[in-house]
């Protein structure tokens, strides 16, 4: 990051807003805007994207003049493990069922902190996964498979 951006939080917020505005403006370019008396599906999103883009530009411009906080430390380990745990659940739940999938999700999450103690982690995972199965599948009746497909 260059030193000349004195307010990185505002600057990158502006960049994010512009990116969202451009994304919606471009992918909605073929939508019919209609007329004011009969607005089409493109009218409202286009107007909103335009204003959002203007706000983004203002934020970026202002960020060069004001002083503010830097973005600070990014928790890369947290991002990878927590998102990884959710994605792992998605990848495995249909084939592997709640018990295996749930254990995998718990274990990947535990990797998110260096403070995890492994015996404790295993015990907690087993208890929580069994409790979830009893509560959500047996109790509430969610239609989630419990066991892997190749077992049952």
């Amino acid at each position: 990051m260059k030193r000349s951006i004195s307010h990185p939080q505002d600057f990158w917020s502006g960049v994010l807003f512009i990116a969202v505005a451009v994304l919606f403006a471009v992918s909605g370019r073929n939508l019919d805007a209609g007329q004011l008396s009969q607005i089409g599906p493109g009218y409202f999103p286009r107007g909103v994207a335009l204003i959002l883009g203007l706000i983004g530009v203002t934020l970026c411009a202002r960020a060069l003049l004001r002083k503010g906080q830097s973005l600070g430390f990014w928790s890369v380990r947290g991002i990878v493990t927590v998102l990884g745990a959710v994605i792992a659940f998605g990848l495995s739940i249909r084939e592997m069922g709640l018990i295996c999938s749930g254990l995998a999700t718990m274990f990947v999450s535990f990797l998110g902190t260096p403070d995890a103690r492994w015996l404790e982690a295993i015990a907690v995972s087993v208890i929580v996964v069994i409790a979830c199965t009893l509560l959500f599948v047996t109790g509430i009746g969610l239609t989630i498979p419990i066991w892997p497909r190749f077992v049952v």
Binding site: V86, F89, T105, M106, S109, F110, A121, S125, V128, F136
Partner: peptide
């Protein structure tokens, strides 16, 4: 606590 939150969220 946090792995439990992640699992509940996923379910």
């Amino acid at each position: 606590l946090f792995p439990c939150i992640v699992l509940f969220s996923a379910i």
